[in-house]
Structures are given as C-alpha cells and as structure tokens.
Amino acid sequence: MDIIEVKNLTKTYKTFKKEAGLVGSIKGLFNRKYVEKIALNSISLTVKKGDFLGFAGPNGAGKTTMLKILSGILYPTNGEVFVNKHTPNKRSRSFLKDITFIAGNKTQLDWSLPPMDSYLLNKEIYNISNSSFRERVKVLSGLLNIRSVINRPVRELSLGERMKSELLAGLLHNPEIIFLDEPTIGLDINSQKNIWKFFRHLNHEEGKTIILTSHYVEDIKQLCNKIILINKGNIIFNDYLSVFLDHYNVKRKITFSVQENVDQSRLKDYFNVPNSVINVDGNTYSITISKEKVENTLHKIIDDFEIFNLRIEYEPIQDIIAEIFEKLNT
C-alpha cells in the first residue's frame, strides 16, 4: 500500500537578487531583480508503508524542502501530494497526529527546563492518555537509554542526550510516519550507532514508515531499504538500496604488498589500466578496477608476483555518491 504519493511536485522560491555594497543595496531598493529558484522540479514518487527511505544529495538539492512539503510545513507551488490520504498543507488534526518531524539542528525542547516538562505538554497537545503516556516514556527512554536524563534541564545535557530527548518528544504520540531531517548531525560515532539501533527498532519492530535526509550517506546505508538521489530539484535515482549498489557499486580496490626483490618499476605498466596502480607506501600497492576484472587481476597478481597482505575492498558508498554528483554538476 502506498502511504505517500507525490505527483509532479514543483516548488519554486522567489528571491531578489542583491548586489554587494551600499550602492548595490540602494539600487536594489528601486530596481529589484527577482530570481526564481526551482527547489523541486516536477517530482513524482511513492512510498510504501513500512519503507525506510533515504534522501541523499548535496546541499541545496531539495532534500529538506521535500521533507517539509511532505510534513505540511511548506506549500507546494504545483502538483499533488498525499500523505496517509491527507493533503499535508491542510494540516488537519488527524494528519498531524499521524506524523512527526524531527530535525537534528532544531529543538522543540525548552532550553531551561527538563525534557519531561516538554513531554507533559506534548501529552496534552496530542491528547495522550495517562497510561499510554507512562508506557511510551518508559519504553522509549529505555530504548534510548536516557532514563536518568529526562528530568535534568536541557541546557545541562550533551548533544547526544539532547538529540535522544528530542526523539522521545517527537515520538510520544506514536506517529505512523516519521520524518527525520539530518538526525545524526554533529553526533559522535557511539551516539550515532545507538540512534541507528533505535531507528531500526522503530522500523522493524513497530512497523513505522520512516523518511530520512542526511549528509552522512552512512546513515542511509545503515538504515534504509530505499534510496532517492536528488540533485538540483530533480530525482536522479529512486529504487531499492540493493539495486543502487548493484548498479553503481562496480569498482573494487585490491591492495597488496610485494616482496622486496620484485622489480617495482614493472608494476605501474603491468596491468594495462593507465593510472590505476597507486603506490600506497613502501612496497604496498593498490589497484582500482571494475568488479568483472577482479578474478583475472587476482590471478595475475598471485601468479606473477611474490605477494603477501592481499585485501579486496568495496568502494565506500559516500565516494560512489560523491562521484555521481560530481559528474552531474561539472
């Protein structure tokens, strides 16, 4: 079942062009040149119930705009959007109770009060009964490991603790659809891993549909079953993560060390792939090739050289995606 349906969605912003300096500012007062910026360009997509979808793309690609239109914060310029059969920007009560929007760089918690005060407020806003409130706080604070934290003022919490308290605030009302905007921004690797575990629980055990944007492609690789690449407001890839990897993850890096007595000058030209052999250090070399050539190359290396320390690696997903965008934008 499609829980989210987007048809030909376009979002444009009008901004006026400012020239630098005082003279430019004064000119701008009388002769404004408006520039129309296309944030999203005729986008169509669907999301199934229970999907964990990640939006990846460079800064300003339209990821956050997309998320904000889906959650009813922004009005679309054109096109149709349905989320759980609602039109998001009408912001009906039942729609807003079905969703949550959690941003890594914005807080709904009051800086000077303990998170619990904000939770009690959300309890009333979302009309949560006493028993399910207690239950939900208990379960979520246990999963996030913040039981000792939620009664201390927010200003005393670490960034990781604050983010976890934030997640709890956003999930108290048990929403079906969870929008996450850069949820791991600025977190250390341990907090990041804990939060991944928590998101997996929400998706696998509680069956929530989750839509995520992140600069850290690793977030998407760890969590999502679907990936959408978005560049300058256009979708350039939209499918399962496994399909993405089959399609784009085509290079392998073989790293090996040779014995001292090998004629190393020979190595650079040996594999017939120009510039592909790199001297990592001393007598360690690496070669990056397409996955079809792995078998042949390995044979060659083993047969023709005395080697030790052989290693074969996938190309890291962030490098693959960075390369895709670099090609598109040059």
Binding site: R91, L96, F101, I125, Y126
Partner: peptide
C-alpha cells in the same frame, strides 16, 4: 530561525 517548522507540525 525556523521555529515555525515546529509550530506547523503540531495539532494546535
């Protein structure tokens, strides 16, 4: 500062 984001997703 974008506080409106938060106001708009709450059912009040």
């Amino acid at each position: 500062t974008g506080v409106y984001d938060r106001l708009l997703v709450r059912p009040v």
